[in-house]
């Protein structure tokens, strides 16, 4: 979904009115993609229903600047991690390999990698929250 949404956004970039809100325009496109995806995947067992997806999308749009701040804070927090920790995140989040494959490459159990990822996320979340609080953004 992430990749497909990005591609659609690129393709429709010419339709964007530069005087308008890029965020709201793009969110609309993303929401349509999600809706289409959910329709296709309707038979899947676990997915949020459209009511909740709409609610989350609406509130996400209202938090545009906060999301931007979080991303910027994340960039800084990442730089505080060790190179090894950054490498693990990069492997897991590059989107090219499954967690199982990354765990195999790192020579560790998949569950152990999940645990380490969870702790790294916790660290990053705490760091982001601290930064935003210091900036008065949160």
């Amino acid at each position: 979904m992430f990749q497909k949404t990005s591609i659609v956004l690129w393709k429709k970039m010419s339709e964007f009115d530069r005087d308008g809100s890029f965020f709201h325009w793009a969110c609309g496109i993303a929401f349509n993609e999600v809706r289409n995806f959910l329709t296709v995947q309707r038979r899947s067992r676990l997915q949020f229903d459209l009511e909740l997806v709409e609610l989350l999308a609406q509130e996400a749009a209202e938090e545009e600047s906060l999301s931007e701040s979080r991303l910027e804070a994340l960039r800084r927090c990442l730089s505080q991690l060790s190179k090894r920790q950054q490498a693990i995140l990069q492997q897991c989040y590059s989107g090219t390999e499954s967690i199982t494959a990354v765990a195999k490459q790192l020579g560790r159990e998949r569950t152990a990698l999940y645990k380490q990822l969870a702790r790294l996320r916790e660290k990053l979340l705490a760091c982001i929250q601290l930064r935003l609080a210091q900036e008065g953004t949160s």
Binding site: M1, F2, T5, S6, L9, W10, F22, F23, A26, C27, A30, F31, E33, V34, F37, V53, L56, A57, A60, A61, E64, S67, E68, L71
Partner: peptide, 12 residues
């Protein structure tokens, strides 16, 4: 694009 992909990701 990265930003909007972020937003999209929130819901997907």
């Amino acid at each position: 694009v990265a930003l909007i992909a972020t937003a999209a990701s929130i819901v997907v």
